[in-house]
């Protein structure tokens, strides 16, 4: 009897929770939507006003005035909504316009708001704080110290966010953490690091070949990928040396790197690697030989036409076609 009653009351409680949550969520959404609309309108209004003849020269002053009036009117400004609007807008702006927007964020006290989040216990809020701090480019020693403290936290996702934040805050990215890394550098973090690195000028980038000797396999793979991506030809010899290695993932990435860097010196080694016992190495080598080689390598490929593996046969056919077209007509 009592079990049935408890279950029935449990069901009723859940129905109530569902409705209350739905009502609260809708009210919250409406409030945020209204504020977003209002703030966006103010920003747009300031922009129009700053263009008019008798307007103040300073866009920042104009917009701040408007927001001060808004603050008086409604009692306070919703800093999260403001942060979201400004950072979203920043993504689609460049140069002076972007700088002005950041100035506005500073004038509205949004960096302090973001900084507060770093001290929260919740992973969610901390991560959001890290994103906002980096997006607002708040590069003070105090902030850096606060972020470095977070690096002590022993959860992988937050550590990844910290690494990214610290890298993004430096004008010349400090990838020193790669020297100390004992765990694998995830593909995901590599992608996100690369996404940031490619927004920088080439001269700001470090020499990635310094990590080609790392004992951490994932760090070597990352270094090879970045060397190829940013065309660091000075590292060519170091890259070529990796072709003598025995670790299959590194060997495959090296072959891809020499292909991207178009290192023709690698052709003899690549031609030997075509006979490698690992099919993936064979496939990468065939692709590289097709890209970099000429008709002299054709003879070496003939035995692979009858290879038992379909993909090797197919890569051979592609490479042969490429080599034939690479050969200058005499």
């Amino acid at each position: 009897m009592s079990v049935a009653l408890v279950l029935m009351l449990g069901c009723l409680a859940l129905v109530l929770v569902l409705y209350i949550h739905r009502a609260l969520a809708m009210a919250r959404k409406k409030k945020v939507d209204d504020l977003q609309f209002r703030y966006q309108y103010l920003l747009y209004d300031a922009l129009v006003e700053s263009q008019s003849e008798n307007a103040s020269d300073n866009f920042l002053e104009t917009v701040l005035q408007l927001f001060q009036q808004e603050k008086k009117r409604s009692g306070s400004l919703n800093q999260q909504v403001l942060t979201d609007i400004i950072l979203n807008l920043k993504k689609s702006l460049t140069g002076a316009a972007q700088d002005q927007l950041l100035e506005l964020a500073y004038a509205l006290g949004l960096p302090e708001y973001a900084q507060k989040k770093l001290r929260q216990q919740s992973f969610n809020i901390r991560t959001q704080g890290l994103h906002e701090v980096t997006a607002m480019q708040i590069n003070s020693t105090e902030i850096r110290n606060e972020i470095e403290v977070l690096q002590q936290v022993d959860t992988s996702p937050i550590n990844q966010e910290v690494i990214l934040a610290l890298t993004k805050l430096e004008s010349a990215p400090n990838l020193g953490f790669l020297n100390k890394l004992t765990t694998p550098l995830s593909e995901w973090l590599q992608i996100r690091l690369h996404h940031h690195l490619r927004s920088l000028e080439r001269h700001q980038l470090p020499d990635f070949s310094q990590w080609l000797d790392s004992t951490n396999e994932s760090v070597v793979l990352f270094a090879l990928r970045m060397t190829a991506e940013f065309k660091q030809y000075a590292a060519s010899q170091k890259v070529l040396n990796q072709l003598n290695g025995s670790l299959v993932p590194i060997l495959i990435e090296t072959i891809k790197t020499v292909t991207k860097l178009k290192l023709e010196e690698a052709i003899p080694s690549l031609t030997n690697l075509i006979q490698h016992e690992n099919t993936d190495v064979q496939l990468a080598s065939l692709e590289a030989v097709g890209e970099l080689g000429n008709s002299q390598q054709l003879a070496k490929l003939s035995s692979l036409h009858e290879h038992p593996n379909y993909w090797v046969r197919r890569a051979t056919a592609t490479a042969v076609t490429q080599l034939e077209s690479n050969t200058p007509v005499s």
Partner: peptide
């Protein structure tokens, strides 16, 4: 009991969805 337990599980799933 069986009936309400089944309903309860569905409601928990709806909460998760919500």
């Amino acid at each position: 009991i069986i009936y309400f337990f089944s309903v309860l599980l569905s409601l928990v799933a709806l909460i998760a969805e919500e």
